[in-house]
């Protein structure tokens, strides 16, 4: 399958260890991160990462793996193929 990129977005209340937790899960699943940016907006932690995906059908599996972290740290993590952002924001 074609190499694709996906956007992982993480939103939640700022606290210690969010980046560590999320990137650990990605590393454990051999997912490479190609870009990362993060900011705090009115106490809210927002991180957006660009990851390489070999098989888009595996995205839902990865989502499942994020579930425990989402609950533990009160985060909202979503993963979407990058194409949708390209389509919406680039002509």
């Amino acid at each position: 399958m074609m190499q694709k990129r996906a956007v992982v977005s993480v939103v939640g209340k700022d606290q210690v260890g969010i980046i560590a937790k999320v990137t650990t899960i990605l590393a454990e699943n051999s997912v490479n991160i190609s870009d990362i940016s993060q900011t705090i907006l009115q106490d809210f932690f927002t991180m957006i990462m660009l990851i390489d995906i070999n098989d888009p059908t595996k995205l839902s599996e990865l989502k499942e793996k994020f579930k425990p972290a989402e609950q533990e740290l009160g985060l909202k993590i979503s993963i979407q193929l990058e194409d949708v952002f390209q389509a919406m924001h680039r002509v």
């Binding site: 956007v7 977005s9 939103v11 870009d35 940016s37 900011t39 927002t46 957006i48 909202k76 979503s78 979407q80 990058e82 949708v84 952002f85 390209q86 919406m88 924001h89 680039r90």
Partner: peptide
């Protein structure tokens, strides 16, 4: 062209909110 942080946020907000 890389997608800007704000653009990604905009899309996510459109879906979520």
């Amino acid at each position: 062209m890389a997608i800007a942080f704000t653009e990604i946020q905009e899309t996510i907000r459109m879906v979520e909110m």
